[in-house]
Simulated assay, not measured.
Amino acid sequence: MDHEAAEQLIEQLRNGEKEEVVISKDEFTNFREVLVKQADKKDFRGNAQHRGSVIYTYEPGWTA
């Protein structure tokens, strides 16, 4: 996954176009590099799965 693809997925989560995104173990590092640069990074929730995949959702205020 390149940075542009990660940015598109993040934007789709943010806009509600997607409820969740599954990121594989191989894609995780590139996705995370883009995610941590977002101003609202704390609104994204990652749920680790078996075999290294992570399911991300956008939940504003979940950390409050």
Rank of each mutant, 00 (worst) to 15 (best):
M1R: 05
E4T: 11
E4L: 10
A6E: 08
A6H: 03
E7H: 12
Q8I: 14
L9H: 09
L9I: 02
L9S: 06
L9W: 07
I10V: 12
E11L: 14
Q12S: 14
Q12I: 02
L13Y: 01
L13M: 01
L13V: 02
L13D: 00
R14D: 03
R14W: 00
N15D: 09
N15M: 12
N15E: 14
G16S: 05
G16F: 01
G16M: 06
E17D: 10
E17T: 03
K18T: 11
E19G: 09
V22Y: 06
V22T: 13
V22E: 14
V22K: 13
V22S: 11
I23Y: 02
S24E: 11
D26W: 04
E27T: 09
E27C: 01
E27N: 13
E27D: 14
F28W: 10
F28D: 04
T29L: 15
N30W: 04
N30T: 10
N30V: 10
N30C: 11
R32G: 00
R32I: 10
R32A: 06
E33G: 06
V34M: 08
V36F: 11
V36K: 06
V36Q: 12
V36A: 01
V36L: 07
Q38E: 15
Q38C: 07
A39P: 09
D40L: 04
D40E: 06
K42T: 13
D43F: 02
F44G: 02
F44M: 05
R45D: 07
R45V: 12
R45E: 13
R45C: 08
G46E: 05
G46W: 02
G46M: 01
N47Q: 11
Q49M: 12
Q49H: 04
H50S: 11
H50N: 15
R51S: 14
G52M: 07
S53Q: 12
S53R: 15
V54Q: 00
V54L: 03
I55C: 06
I55F: 08
I55D: 00
Y56T: 03
T57R: 11
T57Y: 09
Y58C: 03
Y58E: 05
E59G: 06
W62I: 10
A64G: 13
A64D: 14
A64V: 10
A64F: 13
